[in-house]
Design a binder for these strands. Structure first.
Lengths: 260, 260
DNA sequence: GTTTTCGTTCCAGTTGACGGAACGAACCGG
DNA sequence: CCGGTTCGTTCCGTCAACTGGAACGAAAAC
């Protein structure tokens, strides 16, 4: 009962060795502190090939070898990630806005966008305490059962919605919306209200509120959300908090040049 | 007069194709919005090889192709960087401390560590305004002429110092310390004071103050600094601000388990 | 309009990656 | 304390696949 395989995005790039190496790198992103044998098992590769890839990757510091002789992501990925983040206006402008939003609502806040049909966190503010639930934080989630995903799908191109439905609205909790027609109704409601709510649809006990962020061309390039336990983000707080999320999203949109 | 070449960390990893691809990725980190021909020129490779590497890299979303047909870093590097940062206690604990330090001193603050003889920013707080001087921010700097580097070298293993001197104390400004004996004296003074000052030794008009951060085993694993224009970080403010930097560094050290 | 430079594709030669097997070291359970 | 297993690492022959030309249309520069 092994965790099995990493992520073949679209096999056969006709560049085997590079595909293998990038697969190794992504596998180390999914789980840290992995040995060569386990990596080879997950990726269906051979130990020697994985070893050679890791040797090159560690020479460039994309991975580092722990004293356990096991491997983990290296400093280079942090360096490149920081460069990407600082180059992107979106994340730079978003940081103080998210910070304030977290302070006002006493909740975690996120900036995310769609990537390959999933919601990918670009920035996350942990508040009040950086409570560490798990060792490897979840930065990528399904779109159909998260406030962020619903906000983005509702205000994005229709093909994103059809893809999400085609991919199957996987049930995550008893409250996950899994019927296509109910999902379309939900998106219509999100579009009307301007914000989306996730009522324990992804993780039981957790509630989220999200609103889309628009760029100059009025594309929904990202979304802002807050997330908290239902004991804190109670039903009577949904309305006022949603207004704060909307306000934050509007402020960021205007920074990006969104007209009015 | 081309910018010329990227960064061969230690050629001949005996994995040519992977080395080329990683070189391409790092070149895109140094400068964004590069075309295939320019990449090939910088890395002394052939267009077709660079093209193939970019095809695989973009399939995995490590790079993305701009509408200009040029290439840039992709979302995947941000995702991996965020994973690395959230896994590392150091950066998680440091963020609120840096934030407070920036607020108290009205200056930018940094968390950095040594990587391959250079200072590499792990975290940076831009304060008060995220003033954008240049498009691609400098996250990697020489150790010998920065407060962070001197703090880390002074409290780290002696071999780091000899390496720095052997690499040549390159002159960056008129105030850069370039003589080995004077540099050793400076490090001794840093060790004695507990903090390091960079008086326009890296960038004219800029002053920095840094103090080391120790882990459980009392290794100087990182350093905290503030940086500002000399018009703001005036000579009479060095003493009080240094105390605040020291306090921040001590707080982070204790969070890491450093005894007393 | 002309010329250069770009990104992309194709192809043959040969380099260098693949995938076994083998080695010593670390780790396990007894 | 000591077999037995599993680990990370190295070596090597084979042949898949990467390299590095040349060639193409398209875009940009002159």
């Amino acid at each position: 009962m092994e965790p099995e395989a990493a992520s073949p995005p679209a096999d056969r790039t006709q560049f085997r060795s590079l595909d293998h190496a990038l697969g190794v790198l992504c596998a180390l992103a999914e789980k840290e502190d992995l040995g060569i044998s386990e990596l080879a098992r997950r990726l269906h590769l051979h130990k020697s090939g994985v070893h050679r890839a890791l040797r090159a990757l560690s020479a460039w510091r994309f991975v580092e070898q722990l004293p356990n002789r096991r491997y983990s992501l290296g400093l280079k990925v942090l360096e490149l990630g920081n460069i990407y983040r600082l180059r992107l206006d979106l994340t730079r402008q978003a940081e103080p806005i998210l910070k304030q939003l977290s302070q006002r609502t006493d909740a975690n806040s996120h900036l995310a966008r769609l990537d390959q049909g999933e919601v990918l966190d670009l920035l996350r503010i942990e508040y009040p305490a950086p409570l560490r639930v798990m060792r490897t934080p979840i930065l990528r989630r399904p779109a159909h059962c998260t406030a962020l995903g619903k906000a983005l799908l509702a205000h994005g191109p229709a093909e994103g919605v059809t893809q999400a439905i085609a991919a199957g609205l996987a049930r995550m909790t008893p409250r996950t919306i899994t019927q296509p027609d109910r999902f379309l109704n939900e998106l219509a409601r999100v579009r009307k209200a301007g914000y989306a709510v996730d009522n324990e649809e992804f993780y039981s006990g957790m509630r989220c509120i999200a609103a889309p962020v628009f760029n100059e061309q009025s594309d929904a390039v990202a979304a802002i959300s807050i997330s908290a336990l239902i004991t804190h983000l109670t039903t009577d707080r949904i309305q006022p908090f949603a207004q704060m999320v909307l306000e934050a999203a509007r402020e960021l949109s205007s920074h990006l040049g969104h007209p009015a």
